[in-house]
Design a binder for these strands. Structure first.
Lengths: 210, 210
DNA sequence: GCTTTATGTAAATGAAGCTCACATGACATC
DNA sequence: GATGTCATGTGAGCTTCATTTACATAAAGC
């Protein structure tokens, strides 16, 4: 049942028909296999079955493709965080924990995206779209921080709270959270490490110790 | 007064005499200027004034040179952390704050080392020496965590404490702590963000709020 | 049909990583 | 002091890559 070129080696004419999309997927595959440094423009072209020059019709250069992968990563990331937050239901603290787990789950299940987003040395504002999606991801965290801050008696500044949680989550993800690529092994699940950290942190801000 | 080859463009014979050292420094320079990805073996050779093949007499390949740079970085890092900790004087909490600041200071003042250590995709155990120095750096943090944990009424597990603080520090350094290379700008100094975070965290563990 | 525009190809350039055969010289040993 | 050996550089060459330029093909509108 291969009537289209989705997935397989469909013969094609002079024009590919879906090169841009194919290249992005190939790039994602390659990044997943060999890291953001190992991915080459030429190999992505080979994977798509086109000449080495063809990708230049769709991306300015190698970095531009990388930025597009990162942008899609941030889109998926922001979506995941917003979904996990679910408007703070049933209450901000529970929702925050869900958000933290979603953060680490993304790093774990989408290491290729995560690498393109945070390890490929793509400038945060390589393109306006990239900047926008990155802001949206951080916005999800920021929104959560605001709700949690408002629920605490000490009323801490929401931005600070967001930055602390983001940094902790990112640090854990970068150091321990990527399967076999992790820098060190851990005596517990990264998710649990993060949950414990956030819990302690919130208690430090005066949350009731449940 | 240039009677030796230290520092300048001293004419040299067939043999360089100090190539390995020169290459490491050149690599560090290049990494600082163009990032870990932009550094090339060939350019390091040019900087040292030798042919492109010469470096292979001292390093197995490009990654091997990178690993050596990272190793030296971890050595300097571990030294800095141990010095800052200063055996916990005058008391663990004060010393821990000093250690946290030293962590971020290193990331800020030695971005090239920090990049080689954490962004160059050098496996943590690329060489036994690298692993050893990395362990020593973490050991400094671990020692500090033990002393602080022992000083707290709740007696939290020291390893957990070390991992939380390391992750927070690394996350802040990676996201905000590298000057213009930072991913986002911050309304405060990274050092202050870290200090506030650790303070809140320790309060969550039952430390007296000073 | 004819033009315009988008999309690919071929060929070439320049740089990089790496290897191999060979050159040079530092040093030890007779 | 001649000689042999080992460490350290050189030169040339191979392969891969990024990127550009001129040209080819086809899809769409006229």
């Amino acid at each position: 049942m291969s009537w289209s070129k989705s997935g397989g080696e469909a013969p094609r004419g002079y024009h590919h028909g879906n090169l841009k999309e194919t290249l992005v997927r190939a790039a994602l595959d390659l990044i997943g296999q060999k890291g953001p440094g190992g991915f080459t423009f030429a190999e992505a072209a080979r994977a798509a079955g086109v000449s080495p020059a063809a990708p230049y019709r769709h991306f300015k250069d190698r970095d531009d493709l990388m930025a597009e992968v990162a942008r899609r990563g941030f889109t998926a990331f922001a979506d995941a965080l917003e979904t996990a937050w679910d408007k703070g239901r049933p209450d901000p603290r529970v929702a925050l924990e869900r958000l933290g787990r979603a953060y680490l789950a993304f790093a774990r299940t989408e290491p290729a995206y995560y690498a393109a987003m945070f390890e490929a040395n793509v400038p945060a504002d390589a393109t306006p779209e990239l900047r926008a999606e990155g802001d949206r991801a951080f916005g999800a965290l920021r929104t959560a921080a605001e709700a949690v801050a408002a629920s605490l008696p000490s009323r801490p500044p929401a931005l600070m709270l967001a930055l602390h949680i983001w940094s902790l989550a990112h640090g854990i993800a970068d150091l321990f959270g990527r399967g076999d690529k992790a820098r060190r092994s851990l005596p517990m699940a990264p998710e649990d490490l993060l949950e414990a950290g956030v819990l302690i942190y919130l208690q430090g801000l005066g949350a009731d110790p449940r």
